[in-house]
Nucleic acid binder design. Sequence first.
DNA 1: CTGAAAGCGCTTACAG
DNA 2: CTGAAAGCGCTTACAG
Lengths: 332, 332
Amino acid sequence: MAVTIKDVAKAAGVSVASVSRALNGRDNVTDETRHRILDAASKLRYRPNDAARSLITRRTRTIGAVLPDLHGEFFSELIRGIDVAARAQGLHLLVSSSHGDADEATAAIRSMQGRVDGLLVMSPHVDASFLHESLPEALPAVLMNAPPEPSRFPTLNLDNHGGAFAMTRHLLARGCRRIAMIGGPAGNLDADERRRGWLDALAAASLARDALLLDGDFSEESGHAAGLRIAALARRPDAVFAANDMMAVGCLIALAEHGVHVPGEIALAGFDDVPIARYVTPQLTTVRVRIADLGRAAFNRLVAELEAPGTLPVRSEVLPCEIVVRASSGTT
Amino acid sequence: MAVTIKDVAKAAGVSVASVSRALNGRDNVTDETRHRILDAASKLRYRPNDAARSLITRRTRTIGAVLPDLHGEFFSELIRGIDVAARAQGLHLLVSSSHGDADEATAAIRSMQGRVDGLLVMSPHVDASFLHESLPEALPAVLMNAPPEPSRFPTLNLDNHGGAFAMTRHLLARGCRRIAMIGGPAGNLDADERRRGWLDALAAASLARDALLLDGDFSEESGHAAGLRIAALARRPDAVFAANDMMAVGCLIALAEHGVHVPGEIALAGFDDVPIARYVTPQLTTVRVRIADLGRAAFNRLVAELEAPGTLPVRSEVLPCEIVVRASSGTT
DNA sequence: CTGAAAGCGCTTACAG
DNA sequence: CTGAAAGCGCTTACAG
């Protein structure tokens, strides 16, 4: 049915070996032969069969991305970053979500095995040890937002600690002294690091003793709940640093509902710089993370591994964050 | 190196044919043999080679999604919808963006050929005729947001016209008489249909004569520019209907900058119901489109085609929209 | 430089 | 029910 390498060979009056060589740009073909072959191929609209090629080359020219979710600004931006980099290399992108579940992540990894040359895995869980069991020894992989410690894989992380530290310093510089944090979900590395950054900055200012930490899970609702608790406090903090933007937004809404003025009575900051941060009133001070860069950097690290297997040091890289000061921590 | 079907056959003391049969759940294998084979396979951690399997079955168990972009709430939600449906069917998802460019879309389609069993293509351009040239005859495909007219492919569209019509009626019911529209990019089908819905509703109320249409391109900036023009108008409209939410948001900001009160002086509505719509002040009235449903419906249509090639009628379906009334068109 | 042949790892008629 | 064999469409030593 479909046109194969044999048809091209016949049409060009050469062997399939020559067709293969010509099409793959080998130099051991005469220009004249190559020309005749290319001609025949294009005339027949020949497309090499990828499965056959993969079977023999053991390459799929595809990389897989296993992410906790595919939804929301964060992942959307991450996928975009990976896609752009992949296109530039002529590689295909297979995506799958694990819904933050270790079993689903394992299943996704298993099902991608054999279909990809390498894997990009995001797993922001403290206990990511299952990754080392799930990931086949032979499959190159790069981890994102994963514990850098005991890894056979290169790991890329955002500088959560540095970003949170810098943001807390900003709030201190603005004059805040009682800086509460709304934390992220238990067992989430990003959340842990952000909390640590906040606490370290407070400690450096000798303000860590009565630091107020409120529970949260990265959802807007949990931020709203935390905001309600804060509004009800006899002695309120003078600043609230939420471990992500959506919680900051929820908190902002709760405070507004209770007539607590931001930033007049309480300064507010988030983390991520999602688009919504610029649209709430007042606009939200936050930590910007260049998510697409994270995707691109992880992809490039993986490609490097693919091109020179086992030659690069397995190390952990950290991508910087920057604080973005807006009205919610302004001096109004 | 890797363990193949031969190794399993050897370990189980049977032929590779039997292994293949047992693993593929054929019934012409004794329970005892099957058991022995499954045992050996799991003991050896056997994983069938997908390339070899594809080569002979001519199935990849993968579907491709070619979208204008992978970025932003809309596409993120769409990919999520497709991914969830694909997982349920045990199919893999290959993604690629075309950046709204016909050549890139063609390239993406070409490069996916042979790697996927079917294609989901979104191409909201009036001139989508290139699709019919790019898409191989033999490759099942479902189009989204594409002209339903002269298509050999099933097509799924949002009810842009119905949504815009309903929204305009809502604004009329609220008492607005001079309802301007900020239009979308030229040649974009969704934008065209929304404009048509607006105009038809005005015509039905005999208000189409001096209908004011302002240029826009779906970007927030273009909405802002339109807002500035509106603010400067001697005789302002009493309502503005933006062809998407981001333009409505841009317009809202421009009006606020010029002290024009929404909804007091001008009611405002958008289209899409992106998350930001709920966070601006006042919250934005808009048309909700269930994007994940669009992805899921398109996927299911494709799967139906894959399972029973050529038996389903090639028709165009339209997914309903609903209007969501919020403060920006409230009676304040 | 070119071709004949082997082989990648599967599946599936075809015999038995 | 089971196995030997052919074949899917490529690539790559190996000869010449």
